[in-house]
Amino acid sequence: MKKPRTMKLSLPDEELVGSGNLACQGCGATLAMRYVLKALGQRTVLCIPACCWSVIDGPFPHSCLDVPVYHCAFETAASTASGVKAGLEMVGDTETTVVAWAGDGGTFDIGIQALSGAAERNDDIIYVCYDNEAYMNTGIQRSSATPFGAWTTTTPVKHFKNRPKKDIDAIMAAHRIPYIATASIAYAEDVYKKAKKAKDIQGTRFLHIYAPCPTGWKSRPEDSIRLARMVVQNSIFPLYEIENGEKYTLSIKVKDKKPIHDYLKLQGRFRHLTEDQIKFMQEEVDKNWARLLRKVESSD
């Protein structure tokens, strides 16, 4: 212990997520919650529908979170958050941030109706979707966030998913809500910055956080952060912000785009893919990336 150097942490050291939670080893969703709560602070109410986080939180009289949690029905994350916000305003509390925290199933499939309603009313809530690309809590079933080619228990290897992932950010942009951002847990400061920015904006704000799931993706737990970084660098999941539904800004400008091959090889759910299928996926990724770049250029 020589080197006297003052340690500078890139994030505040206040922890609102406690140890002893029931997450799997190498869980990305826990990290997403940790970074977002660091930014939002103690004055936050969480509305959690059925998703991994309703389990990670712990059984009834216990909770690993230091903020109030409201467990609601699967399809009602956004409408519950709207109701909590309206109730708080009735008693004169305008400072507390209300967060709907849902997984990708509760956002892309089941909760989209409530989310669309809340976005249309422009209710003053933050909606966070942590995206692990299937219904991981109930046992890895296909959701509309599952990417092309992935194995799940309902899309087995012989009949793997042959449709692309739903573009939820474009759907939310079409609602003209004030703030939409995509984030990845490998870029912790970026998640923190975006959650902080979302806190200061009025209206419906949507955060889409990429959270790897070693259990469902059949990847090694220590690769979680690496996968979350690779997915940004090969632009399968680019990081950008959309303000008022039209102003696109890239958060991380990817200089040399990496091929998706290495990313797929780290995950067991893509093991069955042939070279032709990977080539097809690469073409789709390039097309989506070009489309996003066009949007960014046209909004400058």
């Binding site: 212990m1 340690m7 406690g18 140890s19 080893q25 826990t30 940790r34 912790a188 737990p221 220590e222």
Partner: peptide
């Protein structure tokens, strides 16, 4: 290591990281 620990089991003491073995799940991140 502190930033990426999903179990909040790395704590900083005297400017150095230490692992809380009561809660570390051994993910290896």
């Amino acid at each position: 290591c502190w930033k990426f620990c999903p179990d909040m089991s790395i704590f900083i003491e005297n400017e150095f990281p230490y692992v809380n073995y009561d809660y570390c799940k051994g993910c290896g991140i």
